[in-house]
Simulated scan of single mutants.
Amino acid sequence: MSRVVVVTGASSGIGRAAAHLFAARGDRLVLAARAPDTLAEVRAECGAAGAEAVAVAVPTDVTVPGAVQALADAAVDRFGRIDVWLHTAAVIAYGRFDEVPEEVFEQVVRTDLLGAARVARVALRHFRQRRTGVLILGSSVLGQVTTPYLSGYVTSKWGQRGLARVLRQENRDLPGVHVCLVSPGGVDTPVYRQAASYLGVGGRPPPPLLDPGRVARAVVRCADRPRRDVPVGWANPVLRFGFTVLPGVYDTLVGPLMRRAGLDRRTVSAHDGTVFRPNPAGEAVRGGWRRPARWRRAPAGTSEKPRIA
């Protein structure tokens, strides 16, 4: 029997890649993100991949009160239930904490942490009624370690991890309800090119780079066989070891390593990226970081330079 899967953050990166995989399995999909035009593209892709029922696209901004509940209502109205809810919607802002505008920092936290909380609240109310369901939150290794210049994102991912732990404790009476975290390291998605920056340069995913398809496969396996925490990438345990066991060494090295491997060479003026509004022109499964830009064209749907709407 096919499942009903809601994907928030379906327009780009891991969410879009996972939607393709769920569709290929014959699952029925409810796709959500901020940009209607991009959602229409993903809906068509999922239909071509084999979604049993044509995927439903519901433009949704998780920071808007009532929007997540309206999304759940649309899913239930169309398919009668929700079996799996994957949440990957996120935005990023680069900069020293004191130099990132207050409203930008707060919007990152509002999207990445409070948006996840809104999704969890709505999903778990539905799952408790049915006594079954899988909530998968797209987390990050930055929910377990820290790095400079990403204060809003790191704050949100640490808060998300704490929230997930509380939710598991509160739902121990329902063994059929699962709260899962999928935590990759750096992934080749457009989110880094779409990020806000107040450093004078753009951001980039730190190596070793993961393909979003690999993370999406981990998501689908988690939906099949739920696990509390699914790390993706061999570097994660190395980072956690250094952060926990050698904190002085870690804090000495993480700044230079971030500046060398986590920031791009592109010079950019201060901008708010997609923190407040989507940029459909930059949304795709991959960000093009894994391909040598000097002699290969970027994959379709990506741009070598940030295009801010």
Rank of each mutant, 00 (worst) to 15 (best):
S2Y: 15
W158F: 11
L263S: 02
V275R: 10
L209R: 03
Q69H: 02
E52D: 08
G186A: 06
S12D: 01
T111D: 01
L137G: 03
A300I: 07
C46D: 06
A164T: 13
A270E: 04
P292W: 02
T60L: 05
L167Q: 10
V100Y: 12
V4S: 13
L150R: 11
T88P: 06
S151W: 02
G133R: 09
P278C: 10
W158D: 03
Q169H: 14
Q107E: 05
G159E: 12
V154N: 08
H271A: 01
L210K: 08
G66S: 00
L135H: 03
A18V: 07
A70M: 00
R277V: 01
A33F: 07
F241E: 00
A32T: 05
V215H: 13
G9P: 08
R286P: 03
R78L: 02
G262A: 07
Y250F: 07
V187Y: 06
H20Y: 04
C222D: 09
A270I: 03
R168V: 14
P206M: 12
G233M: 09
G262M: 02
P247Y: 02
P208F: 02
Y192K: 11
S183W: 10
V275D: 00
R227S: 04
V238I: 12
G138W: 12
A281E: 04
R161A: 15
P175Q: 12
R165P: 05
R168W: 13
D229C: 15
V64M: 01
V76F: 00
D98K: 14
R228S: 09
Q144W: 10
A93I: 15
V30K: 14
L39K: 12
A293T: 08
L114W: 04
V58Q: 09
L21I: 06
A19P: 03
V108T: 03
E52I: 06
A270V: 04
G162P: 14
N171H: 14
T132A: 05
F79L: 03
A55N: 08
F97T: 15
S269V: 04
V84R: 14
L39G: 09
Q107A: 12
S151Y: 04
A117S: 01
T8D: 07
G133M: 01
Y94Q: 15
V42W: 08
A284I: 06
T88E: 13
V232T: 09
T267V: 13
L39A: 10
G95N: 15
G200T: 10
R25M: 01
I136D: 02
D264V: 04
A48S: 05
